Amino acid sequence: MSRNGNHILSSAMVDSDLTFAEAVSGSSAPGSVLDDLRLVEVAYYGFDGRRHTGQLVVSTAVEQDVREIFALILEIRFPLHSVIPIVRYGWSDEASMEANNSSAFNYRFIAGTDRLSRHALGMAVDLNPRQNPVIYENGQILPSGAIYSPGQPGALAESSPIVEAFLQRGWFWGAHFRNFRDYHHFERPEKFPL
């Protein structure tokens, strides 16, 4: 049983077992944002074929969606490398991506802008950045050295049940951005019906 009182799979490899306070420690987010966040324990299969447990910090507005989608991820055995709150990567999106970590809340701005990312409110989820990289118009790929190959284990594609599950719940997939493709990114738009 984890310290936060949740219990999913006692025989699973534990990738993350933080308390909520530990998961948001050092974040620059204001109290109004932190008060709306929840620490969600999730189960999934790793690339090693074993069951794992990890954690995501998400907004209460999307908590149920995230729980349902991760239940699907577990059911269809879609492999994830790790699911660890980004505090373990020093609040660095780049370090989390390099480690192929799936994550959610990170109080930060959209790269190259002064606008808050949906991650800053716990309203976005990234899955397997190395299998699902960001590909810019100029050909730059992040994380460095990643290869997008739909159909490979851990890679997402338009026909993926996970992509469909997010879209059916009103989320937006970063592969549909106009100027670049962010294959690992899903976000709940600012205005959506609850």
Rank of each mutant, 00 (worst) to 15 (best):
F177A: 06
V134C: 05
H119G: 02
E75Y: 13
A111E: 11
P189F: 12
L167T: 09
G46I: 07
F20C: 06
N100V: 10
G49I: 11
S159I: 11
G139Y: 05
L80P: 01
N6V: 13
L116V: 11
G46N: 03
S59K: 07
V40E: 07
D65Q: 07
V42R: 03
D114T: 15
R178S: 12
N128K: 00
S2V: 09
I86A: 09
S16E: 03
D36Y: 10
L34S: 12
R88V: 07
R118Y: 14
E22T: 11
G112N: 06
S82G: 07
E158W: 02
P85E: 03
Y148W: 06
V62E: 04
W91V: 01
L121K: 13
R108C: 12
S25P: 03
L18H: 04
L34A: 10
E190T: 14
Y148K: 04
M1P: 12
E190V: 08
N138Q: 12
P189N: 12
S117I: 01
R3P: 08
L142W: 13
A157T: 01
V62K: 02
K191N: 14
S160D: 02
P85T: 06
L167Q: 06
F105R: 05
L121H: 14
R50D: 06
A104L: 04
V57A: 05
A104S: 13
H184R: 11
I76Y: 12
I141A: 05
G26P: 10
N101A: 08
H176Y: 13
S159T: 15
M13L: 14
V24Q: 02
F192G: 14
G122P: 00
S160Q: 03
R67G: 10
F105T: 05
L9M: 07
G170A: 07
A111G: 11
V66S: 08
S10R: 09
E164C: 08
P153D: 06
D93T: 06
D36K: 15
F172P: 02
T19D: 05
H52Y: 09
V40R: 09
N128Y: 01
D93W: 10
V125Q: 05
M123L: 15
D65T: 04
L56G: 07
R3N: 11
S96T: 00
N4K: 10
L18G: 03
A111I: 11
G54P: 03
F109V: 09
S149Q: 07
E94K: 14
V40W: 02
H176P: 03
L72Y: 05
G49R: 15
N132M: 01
D36E: 15
S144C: 11
A43L: 07
L80K: 09
V163S: 00
Y107W: 13
R188Q: 07
A61W: 00
Y45H: 12
E98S: 11
D15I: 11
